[in-house]
Structures are given as C-alpha cells and as structure tokens.
Nucleic acid binder design. Structure first.
Lengths: 225, 225
DNA sequence: TAAAAAAATTGATTGAAATCAAGAATTCCA
DNA sequence: TGGAATTCTTGATTTCAATCAATTTTTTTA
C-alpha cells in the first residue's frame, strides 16, 4: 500500500508543469495534492460536473470524450501518466463539458481550484508552464480538427498509426480498442477493420499478435491521401 | 489620421484580457503596443514565421487557416475586433503553424513576446485572463472537431447559420464567402450551394439579397441531423 | 475453464457528399 | 462602364464510408 504523500510526490515528479519549478515552490504544492483511485471503466468525471480540481494522472489511463448535439460520442484525447486535465474549465466554465473514463486501474492526483489559483498568483513560472501546456493541447486539437475536415479516413488512420508507433520500429501495441480508435478518428469499427486489412494486404503493416503490430513501410503510410 | 497612442488605447479597451486589469497595469501595457495596418487580402503572417508578437485585431477581420499535410486548407476561425492570436505559439512553438490573412482593411496591435512575458511575471491577473481566453478557444476548437467528426454537413451548416445569425432575427449578413464557409465546415462550395437551396426550399431560411438572409424557422434548423 | 458478453471481422447494400463539367451571376478593376 | 476574373449555381456521375446483418474471435467472469 502506497501512502498519499508518496502519491503526491510521484505526481509532482511526473507532471511537466511542475518540473521546472524551484524546490521551494514544489514543497509548497506537495501538501495541496490529494490522491484518488479509479477502477477500469469507472467514470472519473462527467459533463455537468462542477470543476473543483485540476486532475493529474499518476498511473493508468483516462479517456476524454465529448458528446455532440446529436448524441454521438467522440474521443478527444487520452491522458497518460503525467498528463493533466481540467485546466481549461478551471478558468472558464464552471462545469465540465466532457467525460473522463478510466481505461485501466488508474491513480489520479487532484489539486483544488482555489489552492491552485492561489499558487498561480505567487508563481509566475507555474503560470507560464500552464500556458505552455495549454498551447500544446490547443495545437493538437486544432490539428485533429484540420485532419477531420480535410483528410480521408485512410489518411487519418495512417497518421494515427505512425504517431502511435513513434520510434518503435520493432513492434507497438495499440493503446485503445478499435472501437475507441474509430471514435477518435470519427469513423466506425467496421471501417477501421477494413483499413487494417487493406494496409496489411498492401504490405504496409504486419499483425504480430492481438493489438500488436509492426510498421513495414512507414514511407508508404505517410504517402497515403 | 489616427495616432499610434490612440490605437494602443483602443486595443487595450477592446481586448477582454486587458479589461479587468487595474488602471496602473493598463498604463504599464499601453506603451508596449505597436500598431500596424493591412489591406484586404494581405498576409498578416504565414506558417513558418517566427512568433514575435501577440496580435490583437483593433478593426477589420483576419482569417486564420491551417494547411493539412495533403495541402488542403481549412479555415480555423475568424478574428474580429477584440480577438487576438499568437498566444498559443507565444509560449510553445517558436514558429507559426498557421496563416493569417486580412479579409478587409484591418488594423492590428502587436505586443512583443519579451514585453508580454515580462508583463506576465508581474501581473498574475493577466495570466489568469489569458488562461481564461485559452480555455474558451480550446473549448471552441474541441467543439469544432467534434462537429466535424460526428455531424453531417447539413447539421454543421445549420449550426453555423444559427451561430452567425445570433440574436439577429430580422436579417444577417454572411461574414465570409461561400468558399470560405465550405473550407470552415470541411466541405465544397458546391455542397454549400445545394444545402442553401435545400434550406430555402424547406422554408427554413429566406434569401433577402446577395449574402443576406433571414432565418424563418430556427427550431427547424436546430433539429437537423 | 466453460459460458456469456463484448469486440472484431466480413459481406451486401445504401447513401451522402466529392468530383467533374458547364453555364450564370457577381465582383473587380482598368 | 464594360470586359475580365472570380465566385456561385446546377446537373450528372462516381466514390468513399455508413449502415445493416451475420459470423468469428477475444475477453470477461461466474
């Protein structure tokens, strides 16, 4: 059993926005951190919830989804250890606009809104770090939006595979179910399934095991339109 | 001819992020503001440019576009007087990821990166205001992304018209060309043209003049899926 | 570990929107 | 103001991906 203080320390160590702070500043933040555990499939927060805290993923994985007016769900992004969420709503809307669901057994750390805002007032460096992180997420969502409106499903899946594989040239594991990939890319599981088959037939990728693949022709994937 | 100092004052008055600052803080910022004019169609900035400044639109209109890997262009958003841009890249990337083009004769105000960051160090309220604005833009881009991946073109156009009309129940002017609307919604001018005809035939909207419309059945538009 | 549930695959069909093409309406500008 | 350039509209056709339906595979759990 891990103690809360250890969790707090782990979160602070993990999160990029805290990494460049001075020891003194980090020491100030540590006691503000609270810890929470969620089982796989459990809801971390739901749209309409009051945003009371900044949430940091210490261990596990959380998916952030948004429900469109017509009731359809889109997966916006995944939070991995070190990623955080709630900053957006923490300063603007008072209620959540989206859903967070644990995809695995997940530990999160929370810093309450008022504690965090107070900390911001005295730490300009923290504010800059947050602005930095914000900018990155904004760029990533803008990129997602542009892809969704200009690229074919095939191109989007190819890009997704290249991103997911990263520098892992040997093999990589799909971090989510095909159903979730479909939701992320704005398509259906059937179409994802067919495209995987097409890519395999074309010698672009190779299936090694369930959810494990290897990219055989990265250039070919990148050329897909 | 308007003087630069007047422009600076106008910008500071216009922009939400400056509005809640103290008089003392605003007085500090005013001398940092530089003014610039662009003719309609002129490029305000291009992808690859070094982000040297926060840009505030004082008068006119600027469209922000992004070019996808396949070369297709998407219109991301329009900047109207009081809107600003560059905050994202100001803290993260050193070069622009998108394009800004003046759609009309446009006056913008600029605050240089280092001046702005210095100001941030001494004004926590300014940081909070920026975070606030960031949050709103993130929510709006996320919404755009969700619409693009889950809604039909018809639904997206209907929502766009409702947003554009706002509370103007009598008539409203389309703020951009059909070509740009198509780019914004991720479709083609032909499809936009057809949907406008369909909406008119269905008695949902009425064309009053070139680019001028009236919404006849807002509820009907909102119900489109 | 066997049964049930969930996820993934495959095929057949439909449908929404892109593309191609040509003409009409607007806007630009010399 | 009149001709050129751009934008818009309409029609015909094609294409990509959704939907519907039926298995098969994988995962969960009792």
């Amino acid at each position: 059993m891990v103690h809360d203080a250890d969790h707090a320390e782990q979160c602070i160590k993990l999160v990029p926005i805290f990494q460049t702070l001075s020891d003194a500043e980090r020491a100030q933040i540590a006691p503000l951190v609270q810890h929470r555990h969620y089982a796989s499939g459990e809801s971390v927060f739901a749209a309409g919830d009051i945003v009371g805290s900044l949430m940091i993923v210490a261990h596990g994985q959380v998916k952030i989804t948004q429900i469109a007016a017509n009731g359809k769900e889109q997966l916006l992004y995944l939070l991995n250890p070190g990623d955080f969420d709630g900053e957006a709503a923490l300063f603007t809307a008072s209620t959540r606009q989206n859903f967070g669901t644990a995809l695995a057994a997940t530990d999160v750390c929370m810093i309450r809104r008022q504690d965090f805002q107070k900390q911001l007032q005295t730490s300009p460096q923290l504010a800059l770090n947050i602005l930095n992180a914000f900018g990155q997420r904004l760029a990533s969502v803008a990129e997602q939006s542009t892809q969704a409106t200009t690229a074919s499903i095939e191109e989007r899946l190819a890009n997704y595979l290249l991103e997911t594989a990263g520098d892992q040239t040997d093999e990589f594991k799909l971090p989510m179910k095909k159903k979730d990939i479909a939701s992320y890319l704005g398509t259906t599981p059937e179409t994802i399934s067919r495209k995987f088959r097409d890519f395999t037939d074309a010698g672009l990728i190779e299936k090694l095991a369930v959810n494990r693949f290897r990219i055989l022709d990265a250039d070919g994937l990148a050329l897909i339109e």
